[in-house]
Design a protein around this nucleic acid. Sequence first.
DNA 1: GTGTCAATACGAAACGGTTCGTAGCACTCA
DNA 2: TGAGTGCTACGAACCGTTTCGTATTGACAC
Lengths: 127, 127
Amino acid sequence: MAGQKSVHPTKGEFRILKVLWNQGPCTVRQVQEGLRDESGYTTVLKLMQIMLEKALLSRNEKERTHVYTAAVPEVQAKCGLVQDLIEKAFGGSAQELILQALSSRKSSPEELSEIRRMIDTIERKKP
Amino acid sequence: MAGQKSVHPTKGEFRILKVLWNQGPCTVRQVQEGLRDESGYTTVLKLMQIMLEKALLSRNEKERTHVYTAAVPEVQAKCGLVQDLIEKAFGGSAQELILQALSSRKSSPEELSEIRRMIDTIERKKP
DNA sequence: GTGTCAATACGAAACGGTTCGTAGCACTCA
DNA sequence: TGAGTGCTACGAACCGTTTCGTATTGACAC
């Protein structure tokens, strides 16, 4: 118990997690290629080592080339970020965040009805 | 022109902005008291000076005791945060963020229909 | 004037995130 | 065996945020 303390990934860490979530377990090299930018190999490696310490990643050291896996599920990490934002900026109100999200990008009618559909689903799920 | 470049408030800066949004123009002392924690006076002052440089705040120096005002509207700052999060974590999809927000806190039926009402409003506003 | 009080200004330092240079290790191939 | 390759490990350094100690200034009372 007590050790859960969900660590919040930084921006850079989140980018690495995204690659791992998409591609499944990867070597450092694979992650570095997955990030389509000029981040150097050792930079990515270092970041991943730190993430290992933070238990954001786990790794398999059986082979000489270590294989890393995301140790936090995508949903949980995103959920943490959203919770944070709701607390930090919207006084704990998810509604307010949603309103803001709705108005901050012009959503197409399709998106809006998509969202409406999601609400329907949730409503139906817990009567 | 060209100078807009909406600066993103840090966490600490955001807390100060919240006080100013709630209470209107304040002195440093008032802001420091508004933050109900142990942040020292000079710490708050320094932060506010930096925010002044970043144009997050403006101030009136007529009186000896300067009076600071939030220079960014609340909506705009929150919008920036939301945009950031959408980009960072949800691949630019506001929908996904909203779904996450809906599921990360159990919304009451009332909240859900509230949100539905908001969607109605938006839909009606731009046909 | 002189002392005191409350405010601003300035700069150093701590801290976390990030980048990168460099070293070392293991494997392969000639 | 020795050079080359590809990987991990380590540590220094940079940058932005945040904290805080200290100096300075202005107003007011005596």
